Amino acid sequence: ETGKELVLALYDYQEKSPREVTMKKGDILTLLNSTNKDWWKVEVNDRQGFVPAAYVKKL
């Protein structure tokens, strides 16, 4: 879809709370919100949640 910003997972991340999502290094995720410098909201496999901003980079 146009207008979607994507990020690349630089590291594996295992969710530690229900508000977070698990990702694997190399995953491409849809970026939903990056206003917080530490935690970015992403969508992966129809799930939305937060990942550490340092673990992903914008494509």
Results as ranks from 00 to 15, higher is better:
Y55Q: 05
L32M: 07
S34K: 07
T30I: 15
V7P: 00
L8E: 11
V44E: 04
E15T: 08
L32G: 01
T22P: 06
K4M: 11
L8W: 07
E5C: 15
N45P: 12
E20Y: 06
K58I: 13
K25Q: 09
V51L: 02
T35F: 10
N36T: 06
P52D: 02
K58C: 10
G49Y: 05
T35S: 15
N45D: 13
L10K: 05
I28F: 06
E15G: 15
T22W: 05
K37S: 12
S17D: 11
F50W: 15
N33C: 12
Q48R: 12
E1G: 14
Q14H: 14
K24D: 04
G49I: 05
K24S: 09
V42S: 00
V51M: 01
K58Q: 08
L8T: 07
G3C: 15
A54L: 11
N33T: 08
I28H: 04
V44L: 15
F50P: 00
L32N: 02
W40R: 01
D38V: 14
N33H: 07
T35C: 14
V42W: 00
R19P: 05
K58A: 08
E15M: 13
F50T: 03
T2E: 13
G26A: 03
T2Q: 14
W40G: 00
K58F: 10
T30F: 13
L10N: 03
R47K: 11
K4G: 10
V42E: 00
L29Q: 01
L8G: 02
V44A: 15
V21C: 09
L32W: 06
L31C: 07
K57D: 06
Q14D: 14
V21L: 15
L29D: 00
A53H: 03
V21Q: 03
D12S: 09
N33R: 07
E15W: 06
Y11V: 11
M23Y: 02
T30N: 08
R19T: 11
N33P: 02
A54K: 14
D46L: 09
V21A: 05
N36C: 10
Q14G: 07
L29M: 14
E43G: 08
V51C: 03
S34Y: 08
F50G: 01
T35N: 14
K16R: 14
L10W: 04
V21F: 13
L8S: 05
N33A: 09
A9T: 03
T22I: 03
Y13K: 01
R47W: 04
Q48F: 07
A53Y: 02
Q14S: 12
Y13D: 00
K41D: 03
G26T: 02
D46W: 07
R47G: 04
L29G: 12
K16P: 04
G49L: 05
R47H: 08
E20T: 08
D12R: 03
K37L: 10
Q14F: 15
V44S: 15
N36E: 10
E43V: 10
S17N: 12
L10I: 10
N33K: 07
P18W: 10
L31K: 00
L8Y: 11
E15P: 15
M23R: 00
T35L: 09
K4D: 07
K25D: 02
L8P: 00
L59Q: 05
K41Y: 15
A9D: 00
T35K: 12
G49S: 02
S17C: 10
T2F: 12
D46Q: 11
Y55I: 06
N45T: 10
A9G: 03
T30R: 14
W39C: 07
K37E: 11
T22R: 05
D46H: 13
K41A: 08
S17A: 08
A9E: 00
L31F: 03
R19V: 09
G26S: 03
K37Q: 11
L6G: 03
T2C: 15
K57C: 15
V7I: 08
E5R: 12
Y11D: 07
K57G: 08
E1S: 15
L31H: 01
V44T: 15
D27G: 04
G49N: 01
D38G: 09
K24L: 08
G3H: 14
K16N: 10
V51K: 00
K37P: 13
T30Q: 10
W39I: 03
E1T: 14
M23Q: 01
K24Q: 09
E20K: 04
I28T: 06
T30A: 10
V42I: 07
A53N: 02
K37T: 11
L59D: 03
D27Y: 05
K37Y: 08
K41C: 13
K25A: 13
P52T: 02
V56Y: 02
K37F: 08
L32E: 02
G26Q: 02
G3A: 14
A53R: 13
V21I: 14
D27W: 13
A54C: 14
T22F: 04
V51N: 01
N45I: 12
Y11L: 09
E43H: 06
Y55F: 12
K16V: 08
W40A: 04
P18D: 12
I28G: 01
L29K: 00
V42K: 00
V7E: 01
A9Y: 01
P52M: 03
K4C: 14
T35R: 10
